[in-house]
């Protein structure tokens, strides 16, 4: 009874102030271009919806994030967005937010805490991304024999494991597709280029039909290696990768890359959608909101996509 009362009181307060909601956003830091883009898009989304965003950069430290959440609670914000730097150690601070009746939405990464401590989590499905990339390749090559080389992410990291699994799920049962070489390029351009050079040496370039890279940066490095070996990336060797950073669209526009799967930095959009529904009438969203893993190819006007993305901070 008391709880219902408090909830409805909260809703009333919120409804009264519906024109200017305040949301606190605790971001991990700015360690990659993707994360910078996520920050930029979150700000944009908040502005478009008339939400007052309080931003806090944790510089890769959990204690900074916990302090930020406590200060958001103290300021009495209407919701908190949290991109957690690690998975564990959040229980008590999430409980504090819950006691203050402030909904928390997790962005991009998950936490190891009871799921009643947060409203929902927005994220992509890494395995699904791999599957989308794999399916594109399966359709592209048809019945041709295809020897694939794979540039993996940092050994042991969850994107590397999941994106490898998803891709293998997709090509399973298509015996004309075979992964012949698989090696880590550490998610970097230099790594991608160096490892691709060794693939070209080991498999004599014209016998490789496609490259699957766990991120665009490695694919961009590999494209240079293929060019320098006198082959034509995008034609002699098909190239599919994941992330959809601006530079890969440029490469697609130039015909060097074939397809990329978007890991959208727009986590805030779905998060705000869920929050607005919750503020409106208390609708509880699903516990996990999966963002779309959109496939982009050379047919999707890559130059326009490049222009749209290049100022997001990638």
């Amino acid at each position: 009874m008391l709880k219902t009362l408090m909830t409805s009181a909260a809703i009333m307060v919120c409804a009264a102030a519906a024109t200017a909601q305040t949301v606190g956003f605790s971001q991990i830091g700015s360690e990659s271009g993707w994360r910078a883009a996520e920050t930029t898009l979150t700000r944009q989304q908040a502005e478009e919806r008339g939400i007052d965003l309080k931003f806090s950069d944790a510089q890769q430290r959990q204690e900074n994030q916990i302090a930020a959440i406590r200060s958001f609670v103290a300021q009495g914000v209407d919701a908190i967005l949290l991109a957690p730097v690690v998975a564990t150690g959040w229980d008590s601070v999430l409980e504090e937010a819950q006691e203050a009746e402030i909904p928390v939405v997790l962005l991009d990464r998950q936490v190891d805490a009871p799921d009643d401590l947060y409203l929902t989590a927005v994220g992509s499905d890494l395995v699904h991304e791999g599957e989308v990339a794999g399916q594109w390749l399966v359709e592209k090559v048809g019945d041709r024999e295809c020897r694939i080389v794979e540039l993996q992410g940092t050994t042991g990291s969850s994107p590397a494991i999941d994106r490898a699994t998803g891709f293998r799920n997709a090509i399973e049962g298509h015996d004309n597709l075979e992964i012949v070489r698989s090696q880590t390029g550490d998610f970097t351009r230099t790594g991608g280029k160096e490892v691709m050079e060794s693939f070209l040496q080991a498999e004599s370039g014209n016998e490789i039909c496609a490259l699957y890279a766990h991120n665009d940066d490695m694919a961009l490095g590999a494209i240079q290696a293929i060019n320098e070996a006198g082959l034509n990336p995008g034609e002699d060797i098909l190239i599919v990768s994941i992330d959809a950073v601006p530079d890969i669209f440029k490469a697609m526009a130039e015909g060097d890359a074939n397809a990329t799967v978007e890991l959208t930095p727009n986590m805030a959009g779905p998060a705000f959608d869920a929050l607005e529904a919750y503020w409106e009438d208390g609708t509880m969203p699903e516990k996990f909101i999966q963002t779309e893993s959109t496939l982009y190819t050379q047919d999707d006007d890559p130059m326009a996509e490049y222009e749209a993305r290049k100022d997001l901070g990638y």
Binding site: E31, S32, D186, F187, T188, R189, T190, G191, K193, D217, L220, G221, Q224
Partner: peptide
């Protein structure tokens, strides 16, 4: 050399 090789400066990973 590292920068010229990949035609880009990667502050996070160059020379790591």
């Amino acid at each position: 050399i590292a920068t010229a090789d990949i035609r880009g400066a990667d502050a996070n990973n160059a020379g790591l």
